[in-house]
Design a binder for these strands. Structure first.
Lengths: 229, 229
DNA sequence: TTGAGATAGTGTATATTATACACATATGAA
DNA sequence: TTCATATGTGTATAATATACACTATCTCAA
């Protein structure tokens, strides 16, 4: 026997959320920004990636950017959609479907003008030293890691983990941290230069007692797909 | 001034849907399965990819499979999530967020045991001869096309567009249709064989008056990532 | 002023991989 | 038996990737 036709309310059963896996390389370690969950929550004292509910007037993208801004003081950041997690029991409080994003930055973009809707505390954790995580956020972070580690090889997204102008050593370091393997600097330079993704700014980077290094920048902020490594 | 705390009903504003871009190669043309929208709809006489609402007990994946089965009589098909479309006005009737999927098949898997909740008619259309489409389904199909055309180059998903056992010519044809460019059959064979994705079944394919061709199959149904073309 | 310490920057020889290319083979039908 | 049709195979050359080590530029301290 068929059940009666569902009402509109039956269909509006789910709360929509968004979660943003924000990556940054800190002292040679790929790290992710987490927020400590409020003590009143089921997941008290666990950590979660930055996120929250989507409100009626926002797209998932807009909601993701708003939560980054309100809860972590982050704006103007590279962001792309990862995957939508819809397991029925992923949130013990009820049905929550989450559209996950990945964000990349090279600095700590957090400012202090966050409202009180956020986390007890936000903090960057190296991806291989993660604390206990709330919800299915381990799965979400793992998904982001795979995406990032693949995409670095065939797109120009490395730029979002670097300052606007950077040395070849800095660029190479990003690749080594993400792939986990070292490369010969002469061969690395040849490969990267062959892609035409970089331009020499003519400026040099002076720091400490070392020989100054030429500063490069990416030619395009748009995602360009081309084999690199 | 801040608005009052939203109620649960305020947050459960969206209807969740799923849309499946189902691909199949028919007579050398990459084609997609569409359903003609009911005459009572705003999009009457337009065509849509197979999909529908997600119900409370289903994940997006489960909902996608159920709609394929109920509305197009399709089951046991390769499927992967594409992207979630959340534009506020993508459905003129109200807020509908859709989790899009891509499905691949080699035959017409439609059976006639579809219930009446479906479309006026379902039909395969070559991707470069699409009829007027409902909602943002042009965008969804375009997204699926990009995914498929990229993924064929570095995974073993070509298998889902082929029968279990296939000749090298059939395999090469899949690649040529999807990439839009021809390849030398000796070089193609070398590249594919180097990946170890295929095994010779020992059997041969006899058809018509031609020399029989050896039948191959993929060694794994699981998605394997390895450079092919 | 000179040498030590630190990182930047460069070229070549060799191995590996990709490409271009043409003919003999197996089958059924006439 | 020969014709039509699609199958199946190898090699020479070009292009690309890899391995590898020294010189250059700067600051600081002796």
């Amino acid at each position: 026997m068929k059940s009666p036709k569902p009402t509109l309310e039956d269909l509006r059963f789910a709360v929509l959320a968004t979660d943003v896996v924000c990556f940054r390389i800190i002292e040679g370690k790929l790290s992710v920004l987490l927020g400590k969950v409020d003590a009143k929550s089921v997941f008290a004292s666990k950590w979660a990636v930055i996120g929250g509910l989507i409100s009626p007037k926002d797209t998932a993208d807009e909601a993701a950017r708003k939560h980054l801004k309100n809860k972590a003081g982050i704006s103007d950041i590279y962001m792309e959609q990862l995957y939508t997690f819809s397991n029925v029991d992923r949130d013990p409080r009820g049905r929550v479907v989450s559209v996950a994003y990945m964000a990349l930055t090279n600095i700590d973009p957090r400012s202090t003008d966050t409202n009180k809707a956020g986390y007890v505390e936000t903090k960057w954790f190296p991806v291989d030293e993660l604390p206990p995580l709330a919800y299915d956020h381990d799965e979400i972070i793992a998904y982001g890691l795979v995406r990032l580690r693949n995409k670095i090889r065939y797109t120009n997204i490395a730029q979002f983990l670097l300052p606007d102008r950077f040395t070849f050593s800095q660029l190479q370091s990003v690749y080594e941290v993400l792939t986990g393997e070292g490369v010969d600097k002469r061969n690395f330079r040849k490969k990267v230069m062959a892609t035409n993704l970089l331009k020499d700014t003519g400026e040099v980077h002076k720091e400490g007692i070392m020989r100054p290094a030429a500063l490069y920048s990416f030619t395009s902020k748009k995602i360009i797909i081309t084999e690199i490594l």
